[in-house]
Design a protein around this nucleic acid. Sequence first.
DNA 1: TTGGCATATCGGGAAAAGTCGATATATTTG
DNA 2: CAAATATATCGACTTTTCCCGATATGCCAA
Lengths: 100, 100
Amino acid sequence: MDQVEIFKALSNKTRLQILGWLKEPATNFPDQPNADFENVGVCVGQIQLKAGLSQSTISEYLSILQRADLISSTRLGQWTYYKRNKEGLEKLSEIINTEL
Amino acid sequence: MDQVEIFKALSNKTRLQILGWLKEPATNFPDQPNADFENVGVCVGQIQLKAGLSQSTISEYLSILQRADLISSTRLGQWTYYKRNKEGLEKLSEIINTEL
DNA sequence: TTGGCATATCGGGAAAAGTCGATATATTTG
DNA sequence: CAAATATATCGACTTTTCCCGATATGCCAA
């Protein structure tokens, strides 16, 4: 994964917020029914609701974050759940600490 | 400083390279005459030479990095020297580790 | 198997970023 | 002070990003 793409993914207020929300899903998405935050994460609709942007925009933003390895997705039935990707964030931290 | 602006500053290959070069100035700018890397850093012309983009572009890039607190500048005579800003980078690391 | 949700993809218009050459400003030196 | 040099700023053009509505796709239930 290109480093520039990681930083581009983070260069947007809404995408940064989403990542922050997914760090504490139980706190930030108290209304998600049948939540299994640990294993699957939060579904697109809940994130969209909280972000207040269009469905297509949020779907796109989530895929940008996923391409940057910052989040990962699981499909369950008609829902796609996204969660924080610990490994990707650790790698980012590593880049900053060793290369910049 | 807005977090988004920090990540935007890093969302460009050349700017990322500059920051990397300034981490090891003695290695990356062996030709700078009268170099005082510790105290002042590297002058714009040397960075421009290495980056291979126009003078105006590099000047602008350096000011973007400075606005993001990732580097700092010192004017000495007709030269402006830029160096890595340790504190800003530590703060960035902190953001990633605690908020994302 | 059809209708209804949830999500993804597509196409586009507006805004921002990338990058340049030209010009302005500051500093040193003759 | 005038010329020379280093850097900053400006104006312009191209490319990318933002964000939307419309449409497509996938999945479930009746």
